[in-house]
């Protein structure tokens, strides 16, 4: 516990941040060299948006009522793809052992991986948001606010997702288990995000849905704190 407190102290904070960023940089470098995960996530999310758009178009009167749900199902599925890969490389190439042996606080590893995951998911979202708006014929002006909601949702997804991904990678079924563990837990996050997205697209004043915003922020904070504390137990061997 002293380590954690020490890490939060202002004097040591820069050093701690440096370690976190070093882990993020490692992940980003790996991804830039291979481009495996991001390209798969991007193409996969495009496919989901396309498929939803034309399958719903056959039957629904007005597909724009379905738009918020489609956006969040897409984001949730695409993140699952990225999150499940997050620790596979680490384990297979022995990176995780290296990280654990390094004189770094375990929480720094968690935050590093989490930020990396959030960054990858966020980049893919940046790409699919405009396409989503075009396909579902939504106002382009909603993009800035929408990005804010998407950011909040992504932090929550990556927050719990990183913890569960570190667990799933140690199981026999590996990434298959991740969605089964993650989806029931993130239902409140998805509900809140869908409500906020719908409010933004329908141009409802934010004051009317501020409780959803509060829920989203609270979810992010509570689950990140819980994951941060529990991560130590996951990687302790």
């Amino acid at each position: 516990m002293n380590d954690v407190l020490g890490a939060i102290m202002p004097l040591n904070f820069n050093r701690y941040l440096y370690k976190v960023l070093a882990i993020v940089a490692k992940d980003v470098t790996t991804e830039l060299r291979t481009k495996e995960m991001m390209s798969a996530m991007a193409v996969f999310s495009l496919l989901i948006i396309f498929i939803f758009n034309f399958t719903f178009d056959l039957r629904a009167e007005n597909i724009s009522t379905l738009a918020p749900g489609v956006l969040w199902v897409t984001i949730a599925f695409a993140s699952m793809l990225g999150l499940s890969r997050s620790f596979i490389l680490e384990l297979d190439k022995g990176v995780l052992d290296g990280l654990l042996l390094a004189p770094v606080d375990r929480s720094a590893i968690y935050f590093g991986k989490m930020l990396g995951n959030a960054l990858f998911i966020g980049t893919v979202e940046l790409l699919i948001l405009p396409i989503f708006i075009i396909l579902f014929n939504q106002p382009l002006a909603s993009l800035p606010k929408l990005s804010g909601v998407v950011l909040l949702g992504t932090v929550g997804l990556a927050g719990v997702g990183t913890l569960f991904s570190a667990m799933a990678v140690h199981t026999r079924t590996r990434e298959m288990l991740l969605p089964i563990m993650l989806f029931p837990v993130i239902v409140p996050l998805i509900l809140g995000a869908v409500r906020l997205t719908a409010a933004i697209l329908d141009e409802i004043p934010l004051a009317e849905v501020s409780h959803w915003l509060a829920l989203l922020v609270a979810f992010d904070v509570i689950f990140m704190a819980a994951s941060f504390m529990l991560f130590e137990f996951v990687v302790e061997e």
């Binding site: 913890l163 837990v185 409140p188 829920l215 979810f219 689950f223 994951s227 529990l230 137990f233 996951v234």
Partner: peptide, 17 residues
């Protein structure tokens, strides 16, 4: 670990639903 996170999510789920 999963049991703890899952139990955290039940009140959040309840509120959201």
């Amino acid at each position: 670990v999963y049991g703890i996170v899952a139990s955290f999510s039940v009140p959040a789920n309840w509120l959201a639903i």
